[in-house]
Each structure stands twice: as structure tokens, then as C-alpha cells.
Design a protein around this nucleic acid. Sequence first.
DNA 1: TAAATCTATTAGTATTACAATTGAGCAGGT
DNA 2: ACCTGCTCAATTGTAATACTAATAGATTTA
Lengths: 238, 238
Amino acid sequence: MVKAIAVRNLHGQVIQELGRQIVGGELRPGELLPREELLAERMIVSRTALREAMKVLSAKGLIEARQRTGTRVREKKYWNQLDADVLAWRCASMPTNDFVDKLVEMRETIEPAAAAAAARRRDDTQLAALEAAYRAMEAAEELDAWAEADLAFHEAVLNATNNELMASLFSVIETALGTYFLLSARTAANFKYSLPHHFAVYEAIRRRQPEAARRAMLRMVDDSRTNIRRRRRTKKAS
Amino acid sequence: MVKAIAVRNLHGQVIQELGRQIVGGELRPGELLPREELLAERMIVSRTALREAMKVLSAKGLIEARQRTGTRVREKKYWNQLDADVLAWRCASMPTNDFVDKLVEMRETIEPAAAAAAARRRDDTQLAALEAAYRAMEAAEELDAWAEADLAFHEAVLNATNNELMASLFSVIETALGTYFLLSARTAANFKYSLPHHFAVYEAIRRRQPEAARRAMLRMVDDSRTNIRRRRRTKKAS
DNA sequence: TAAATCTATTAGTATTACAATTGAGCAGGT
DNA sequence: ACCTGCTCAATTGTAATACTAATAGATTTA
């Protein structure tokens, strides 16, 4: 479901390894992990490499090191839940359905608001980008091209927001969901199903009508969610 | 405006130093920073400590290191905008008003949605926490106590959401805004001004009325924003 | 009993050495 | 003149080692 970020470095691997274990629940919050020397030995890396990894995990809020006491896994409430890696590890570990629901809920909250903001503040360049994305969706002949254009469309909306925070949040969520929400609902036969929804969003943003944009985006997201749910049931049945 | 996270460690200081410089624009994207040996020497730390800091900055998406080439500052689009530190550095560097507006915009989209979700999914324990926070606000005699209770109230709402992502996002934003949005609008005289708003939110959540909760929270946030704006004008005038 | 102190353990920092990667230039062939 | 591939050197990546600093817990002392 999730793209594993390619890791060439050694400490990168260590980060992944430990991060996965912590987020996945093998290492439970409060648990004390072996002292650096031992752990390094076990993972067959130098203490240097291990420590570089630990610093990163610590920055993500997953662990906390104190002299003499050792390093322990922090409570979940301190984790940087919005960190791309943490999110990815959760996706990789969790019995996904309820977590996906949470991600979708975030998306449902963000995107309509973003559409409204875009309608308010977009400049002509950003509108042009949006239009280009829409035309690409319209012209798409096959699923791949359509998915790519769809993604570009949503990015363009977020971009027109002129609020990097919104854009960033969406991109994190979207990465976590992978191609899930883009592709899941549509079969090869009807993948252009939501084109009218996209047009409505585009039009509202073009005309600078925030409320219309919000409603249009809401309809789109809603629709996508019901499709995902339907798909989920189908899968379960099969 | 922002709480500087207390840093005891050396690499912690280095992280702050470099992070601030990058986010603050002293080191521009694309710029190549000195090789580790030199940089370490300049900052009067060992290469070890420097590298531990670099790994963290790299995890935040601020820099990218490649062998032979060196380490360079990444484009803004790759930064983890939602990282607490990155946010804090931005707050510390930016001519704040427009950035604060962006944060407020995030808050305005999140909180009403959160209130609605809370009304849908809260359990009795969470409701009790919410009630406790409300009573504390009601009972508050002075500004400090009120601010604390207010914060607890919002946390309780987010918590009742049962969606850690929402909770996390809010907590990040709230930290970035510091006590700004909690305190800025109210003078010592009328700090209990928004109590009715809070009651409305509480009631709607208690009665499991999502839409009512959303609207109530929206009114509250809207109101808070106008107060902030008013305050801003006043400040400018003075 | 409580307060001060010592001690052993663990993370933090520094230093040094070497390995791995790779851009750039050079050599050789066509 | 142009491509190909090789070598070289610069920079990050990894390791090993030694020492420093903080502190939980035992020990001593008032």
C-alpha cells in the first residue's frame, strides 16, 4: 500500500528498522531499549551509525534518550503523527481500515476548505495550471494518465490556496494513502466517472465562488469515499 | 511569540542554529554548505555532533547530502512544513502577520470538523473530560487559569475525535501560535467573553449533534479571529 | 531519619582512520 | 573531433576508540 522510501545509507536502514518496530508495536511505549553499544552490535552497525539514526527517531518524537537511564520509547501522544515516515510505518503495520478512515477524514476536512480558499485567492497562473490539469483528465485515454492528471488537479487546487501548510498536509496524507484514493474506486471501465465533479470545482474556482467550490469539492470527496467503501465490501466478499 | 524548545545537547544547538538559518533564508535553497569538516570547525563542534544534527535536518527535508557533491539546502517544497521545529523557525523569522493568517486558516478548517467528529464519536470518558475543562473555564478567576482551561477544552474536543491525526495537527498549530490565539484577543477585563461559545460546543457534543457542534465551533473560531484582527489594528495604531 | 557523597552506568562528544560514491578530467581509441 | 572508459580526488559514509558529563542508586555521614 505504501511506497517504501528508498534508503541507501546504513543509518537510513536503521531508522526504518527501529521506526517500524516502534510504530508497529513490537517495541512498546515506555520500553527501554538496549544500551547503544549492545544495540549497535546487534544490528551490526557502528555506534556512530546507530546514534545518527537515534537522533532522527528522537526528532520524530518516537524515542527519548537520557544519560545514565538509557533510551526509551515515548508515549504515542508525543509521536509526530504527521511525519511522512511515521505515517508510512503506521500504514505498513496497522490493520488498515480504520486508519484509512482517519486519513480520509482528514482529506475530507482539508480539501473542501482548500477549494474555498483557492476560489478566494487563486491568481491567473494557478488557474491556468488547474485548467491544464483538468484538460489532461478530460483527454486521458487510460487509467494511468487519468490518475496522474487527477493528482495534478488536486495539487493545483492546494497550490492555488497560497497556504503551504494546507498543501503540505494534503501531500503527506496523499502519500500515505498512496494511489489508494485515486485509483481504488474506479475500474478500468468507468475511471472518468468523477470528471463532472472536477469540472464543477474548476468552474467555481475560476469564478471565484468559495462556497460553490467548497460544496463541489465536498460532493467529489464524498462520492470518492462511498466508492472506496463499496470497493472494500466487494473485496471482503471476494 | 514562540517557545524556544530548551536544548541541552550540543547537536540540539547545532540543529537550531542551522535550522533557523535555512528556514530564515540566510541559507537559500540550492545553496551548497561547507563540507562537514569545515562547518564543524566553524561551529566549534566535532564532526560527529555536526553530522547528528545534519541527519535530523535531512529528516525534516531541509537539506540533502550526497557523497562527493556535498550537502545542499533543498527547495521549500520538500520541507516538512508541519514539523514542529520548522514551524517554530518560520514563526521566529517571518514578518509574522501573513503566516499567522495561514495558521489561523488551518485552525479554522480543523476545529469545526473536529467538533463535528467529536459529536459523532465521543465516548463518555471523553465527554467528562470536556465537561471538566468547561467547568474549569467557568470557575476561572484570572487570565492564566482561564487560558489553561481553554487549552484543555480544545484538547478535549480534539481528543474526543478519536483521530490522532487531527489532534496532532491541532497541537502543532497551537504550539506554533503559542499562547497567541488563546490570549491575544481578551483583555484582563473580558477574558470570559467566549464562554457561551464554549458552552454551545460542549452542549452539541454532549447531545451528539455534529452539525450543531460544527457551527458552534465555527462561530467561536470566527469570533476569535475578528478579535485578533482588531487587536492587530490596535497594536499597529499604538 | 535525612542529607550529603560516592560510584558505576549510560548517553554525549571528540578524534582518527578508512570505505564508498561519484563528478570531473584525462587517456586512448575510433 | 568525438565518444568511451579509466583514473583521480573530493566529500560524505562508517567504524573504532577514548574520554566527558550527567545521574540513579547505593553508601556513608550528620
